Amino acid sequence: MGERIKVLLVEDDGDSRELLAELLEPDFDVITAVDGVSGLQAFENDHPDVVITDESLPRMCGTALAQEVKNREPRTGVVLVSGYSNVDAGCCDEVLRKPVDVERLSDVIGRLGEAARH
C-alpha cells in the first residue's frame, strides 16, 4: 500500500470538526483548520490531496477557499459541505449536503485523492 491520502478538513464548528476528523482518521491522514484563512495556510504548508470545506466559514467562505486551492493546485480534490441548497460551487469537485453521510464522504475522498496523485 502507498501513502495514505492526506485530507484537510476546514470547519469552524469545533464539535463537528473533531467528530468528522475522528471518523475519517482510520482511513486518511487528517489535518484541520478553523476558518478559511487558516485553511489556506494549512493547504500551503501541508499540500493535502483533498480539501473538505464548509461553505459558511469566518474570514473566507468555502467557495472562495476552493477557488484559491484550485488556482494554486488544480489537481487537488475539493469537497464543499453545506447546509445551503443553492451554493455556486463551480470550482468544487463535489458538493455534499449537511448532515454529511460519512461513508459517501469517504468514497469521494478516496476517488478524488487517487485522482489528485495521477
Rank of each mutant, 00 (worst) to 15 (best):
D12H: 14
P26G: 05
N45E: 15
P58H: 05
I109Q: 04
R104K: 15
M1P: 14
E44P: 03
L20Y: 02
S56H: 10
A21R: 09
E3P: 12
V10L: 04
L40D: 06
G39K: 05
T63L: 05
D54A: 11
V50W: 09
A21H: 02
V87L: 05
G62C: 08
R75L: 01
I31D: 11
H118L: 12
R72F: 00
L65Q: 01
V95G: 00
D101C: 03
V51C: 08
I109M: 03
V50F: 09
C91W: 02
Y84E: 13
L24P: 07
V30H: 02
L80H: 07
V10G: 07
K98L: 05
E103I: 06
C92H: 10
P58E: 03
S38D: 13
G90L: 07
E25Q: 14
A33Y: 00
D88L: 09
C91E: 14
V69W: 02
L57F: 09
D13S: 10
L19C: 04
L57D: 11
R104M: 11
K98R: 15
G113M: 06
R17A: 06
E25S: 15
S16D: 08
L23V: 04
V95L: 12
N86E: 14
R111I: 08
R104V: 13
A42T: 14
I5A: 08
A64V: 11
E18L: 08
P58T: 10
E25G: 00
S106I: 06
V87F: 04
A21S: 13
D49K: 01
M1Y: 14
G83D: 10
L8Q: 12
G113H: 06
R59V: 03
V34S: 13
Y84I: 05
Q41T: 15
G110S: 15
V30I: 15
N71I: 02
I109D: 01
S106E: 13
A42I: 01
E3G: 13
L23R: 15
K98Q: 15
S56I: 14
F43D: 13
E11G: 10
R4A: 15
F28G: 09
V7K: 11
L112C: 03
V100L: 09
D49F: 04
D46K: 11
Q67R: 14
D27R: 13
A116M: 02
P48I: 08
R4D: 11
G39D: 05
G39A: 11
K98D: 04
P26T: 01
E114H: 07
G39C: 09
L80S: 06
G39Y: 05
P48F: 04
D12E: 15
V87D: 00
H118I: 04
K6G: 13
V95Y: 00
E22V: 00
R4G: 10
D35S: 03
D29V: 15
K6L: 12
R4V: 06
L96M: 15
G113Q: 05
D35I: 01
D35W: 02
R17W: 08
I52T: 12
G39V: 11
V81Q: 01
V78M: 09
E73D: 11
V50D: 12
V100R: 06
E68C: 11
E11T: 11
V81K: 00
Q67M: 07
D101E: 11
E94A: 07
D88K: 11
R17P: 02
